[in-house]
């Protein structure tokens, strides 16, 4: 369904949807290198969606992964830009990971606290914090962090080698972030399925009154869940600047924060499923760049396809629980 809707959009670009889909497929999975690019795009999606689904499970609607990603990237960049070339790589990267986690977590916790103390709707607060994060980044990129050698472009100095995540596979861009992603997926899986926290998390999400009644500490659990989801988004930001971009700039692909929302829903809030969905959508992203270059189809079409799939999924949910009954209008009238 989603693909058909996406196809209609593609027709407006005066190309054959099937050729485009074929090109995306080839671009995503056609060769080892293409597939490696798919994984590169999947890394942030895996990390962010793993965290988001934890928050979504307790019905904390964190849609601020975008901002948490930016803040995480900035906190780790701060470290990267303030270490000397000769520092220990392990130490620097560990600090950057920590900074990314904490930065994102703090950003998400703000919304959680607003919700817990003043019942501010987290959808609104996380969304607004996205813009605040973006403008903070804007300030730093046009101010203190701009590399004098960048000819006025909002780019920082490149990160020293010790602040770059090592590449896992030669001649690809797959970096250590993939390992973070796998670990995050496993940890979140265990957290949800096996632990007390996961159980409490689910009870809060399904019935907050029952959670209070059972003596579950809603305050603490909300903070933790929001913190973890923000932390992982922050880590994704760190992985992107440290593993791919190797500097901080205005464009750090924070849109992954929104795409990851789609990932966690397509994955039915299951960490393992989300992991694979992230790879598929990563393929869509990677393939999308390909079609933009080779077929002159705008990259935006990828967003259209992604959203169409999500709508098809949400619409499909309805038919899982309801039966569609087609009835002729005439029978509505009484038989006299």
């Amino acid at each position: 369904m989603g693909l058909i809707a996406g196809g209609i959009a593609i027709i407006f670009t005066r190309t054959n949807p099937l050729t485009v889909y074929h090109a995306i497929l080839v671009g995503a999975f056609g060769s080892t290198y293409n597939f490696s690019e798919t994984l590169v795009a999947a890394i942030p999606l895996i990390l962010i969606s793993a965290g988001l689904l934890l928050a979504f499970k307790m019905k904390f609607w964190n849609i601020g992964a975008y901002g948490q990603y930016i803040i995480g990237a900035m906190c780790s960049s701060y470290i990267a830009l303030h270490v000397s070339q000769q520092s220990s790589s392990v130490l620097v990267l560990s600090l950057m990971v920590l900074a990314g986690l904490i930065g994102g977590a703090v950003w998400a916790t703000i919304s959680a606290l607003l919700k817990l103390f003043w019942e501010v709707n987290e959808v609104i607060s996380t969304l607004l914090l996205n813009y605040i994060a973006l403008y903070i980044l804007d300030f730093f990129m046009h101010g203190p962090w701009r590399d004098p050698a960048s000819h006025g472009f909002p780019l920082s100095k490149p990160f020293p080698a010790c602040a770059q995540l090592p590449i896992l596979l030669h001649r690809t861009r797959i970096h250590l972030g993939l390992v973070f992603g796998v670990i995050a997926t496993i940890v979140i899986y265990i957290l949800i399925k096996k632990t007390r926290f996961g159980y409490e998390n689910e009870v809060i999400g399904e019935n907050p009154t029952a959670a209070k009644y059972a003596g579950i500490n809603v305050f603490r659990n909300t903070l933790i869940a929001a913190g973890i989801s923000g932390g992982l988004a922050g880590l994704a930001g760190m992985a992107q600047v440290s593993g791919i971009i190797h500097m901080i700039q205005m464009e750090i692909n924070a849109d992954y924060g929104y795409t990851a929302i789609i990932v966690s829903w397509l994955g039915a809030l299951n960490p393992i499923a989300s992991f694979f969905v992230a790879i598929i959508l990563g393929g869509l992203e990677a393939g999308g760049y390909q079609i933009q270059m080779t077929m002159n189809v705008p990259f935006g079409i990828v967003g259209v396809i992604e959203s169409s799939i999500l709508f098809a999924l949400l619409g499909g949910e309805l038919f899982k629980t309801h039966k569609l009954v087609l009835r002729r209008k005439k029978s509505h009238r009484q038989i006299q």
């Binding site: 159980y199 009870v203 399904e206 019935n207 009154t209 029952a210 009644y213 059972a214």
Partner: peptide, 25 residues
């Protein structure tokens, strides 16, 4: 409690998950 579904139980969770709501700690 007066409201089974609103307070005493978690409607979407299984009978097992509901049965341990008190003793899971």
């Amino acid at each position: 409690p007066p409201d089974r579904l609103k307070m005493g139980l978690v409607p979407n969770l299984s009978s097992v998950e509901n049965a341990i709501l008190r003793c899971y700690t």
